[in-house]
Design a protein around this nucleic acid. Structure first.
Lengths: 188, 188
DNA sequence: CTCGCATATATCTATTTGATATATCTGTTT
DNA sequence: AAACAGATATATCAAATAGATATATGCGAG
C-alpha cells in the first residue's frame, strides 16, 4: 500500500460536515458509505492521532456526564487536503468479490455447489438492494440540497449495479441449471 | 484481517489446473482474475512457503538452463482444502471505489470537479469493458468445455456491471451538468 | 555486444482488517 | 433497587494485503 492513507480522506470528508468522535466516524462509515468503502477502529484511531499531529484536525476533549469523549474538528489545512484529494485524477476502484473467485475455480467441484454459491450471492444482493431502495425513498421526500445530489448519485449507483447483478444471477443460474438438467437426462 | 488467508485459495485454484511458479501465479492473477481479485508478490511468496509446510502443495526445484525456478504442485490435501472453501457459504464481497467516495464528499468542491471525476471513471470503465469484450470474443471461438462455462460467467458478470456503470455515468453527468447550466443562466 | 525488457525469487514498510480488551452509560426486566 | 443486556467510547494487537524495491538471470533487437 504505502503512500496515501485513504482513511484520512474519509475522516476529513465526514468532519467537513460536523465534528465527530472516532466512534461516530465508525458509525457513519458503517452506514451508506459501507457500500463502497470500509473502515475499522484499527485504522480510524491511529489516523486521528496522526492527522492531529499534522494539523489537519483538532481535538476537543469533552467530559459529558463524567464520560470521556474526544471530538475532532477539521482545520483549514484539513479542508485544503480534502480538496486536493478531490482534484487528484488518479483513483483506485477495486472489486473484491469472493463469489466470483469461487465461480472462476468452480471446475473443481459440482454444478450444485456453483449454483448454491450464486444463490447465496443473489440473496445478499436482494437484501442490500432493498436497503438501498429505502435510502432512495427517504431521499425523495427530503429537500433537494446540494449534498443530497451527491448522496443520491451514490445510492443510484448502488441500485443500478445491484439490479445488473440480479440480471446476471438469473442468467447464470439458467446456464448452470440447464446443464444440470441435460446431465440428468443423459443419466436417466 | 486474520483467520483465513484468501490468497491461499487463489493459489490452490490456479494450481488445481497446472503446476506454476510464484511468478506464473502473479501473472495469472494480473490477467482476467484482476477484475475481481488482486494478489502481490508480497503475499504470494510467503503463502507458498506456508502452504508447503502445511502440506497443501509440494515444491519442485528445476534448473532450466541454469536458472532457478521453483514450481509448485497441488496435493490431495490441497484439493480437499479448495473444495472445502468452495462449499463454505460465508463469503466476503466488497466494492472499494474511490470514485464513489469522492462523489459522496463532493459537496466540498465545485460541480466541475465532480464531473471530471465521473469522466475519469467513465474512461477507465470504457477501456476495461473493451478488454472484457475481447475476452468474450475469444471465448466464443473456443471449445465449449466445463471450465469455459465458469470463465465465461465471470466475464459476462464484468460486462453486465460495466455496462450498468456506463449507464449510470451518463445519468450522473446529465444530473450534474444540468445544474451547471442552470447556475450559468442565473449568473448571466 | 549491449541495452532494455521479461523472467524469477524475495523482502520490506505501510496500511488495512478483524478481533479483542476495557470501561462507562442507558434502558429494561425482575 | 439490583441485575443485565446492549450501546457508547477509546484503544491496541496480530494477521493479511498492497505496493515498492532489491537482486539476478535470460533473451531478443539493433
Amino acid at each position: 500500500m504505502a503512500r496515501e492513507r485513504k482513511i484520512d480522506m474519509v475522516i476529513l470528508g465526514l468532519l467537513n460536515h460536523e465534528d465527530l468522535t472516532g466512534y461516530d466516524i465508525k458509525k457513519r462509515i458503517d452506514g451508506a458509505i459501507s457500500f463502497f468503502w470500509k473502515g475499522s477502529f484499527g485504522n480510524i484511531y491511529p489516523a486521528l492521532k496522526d492527522m492531529e499531529n499534522q494539523g489537519l484536525i483538532t481535538k476537543r476533549e469533552l467530559a459529558v456526564g463524567g464520560r470521556d469523549k474526544i471530538t475532532y474538528h477539521i482545520t483549514k489545512s484539513g479542508k485544503a487536503a480534502l480538496k486536493d484529494w478531490l482534484r487528484e485524477e488518479q483513483v483506485s476502484n477495486e472489486l473484491k468479490y469472493e463469489t466470483l473467485l469461487k465461480l472462476f475455480f468452480s471446475g473443481a467441484d459440482s454444478r450444485e455447489v456453483s449454483l448454491r454459491n450464486i444463490e447465496v450471492f443473489e440473496e445478499q444482493i436482494k437484501k442490500d438492494l432493498k436497503l438501498l431502495k429505502t435510502y432512495s425513498e427517504t431521499l425523495e421526500k427530503a429537500p433537494d440540497t446540494e449534498d443530497h445530489v451527491y448522496y443520491s448519485l451514490t445510492v443510484s449507483f448502488g441500485i443500478e449495479t445491484y439490479e445488473a447483478y440480479l440480471k446476471w444471477c438469473a442468467k447464470a443460474k439458467k446456464m448452470l441449471g440447464k446443464r444440470v438438467m441435460e446431465i440428468d437426462e443423459t443419466e436417466s
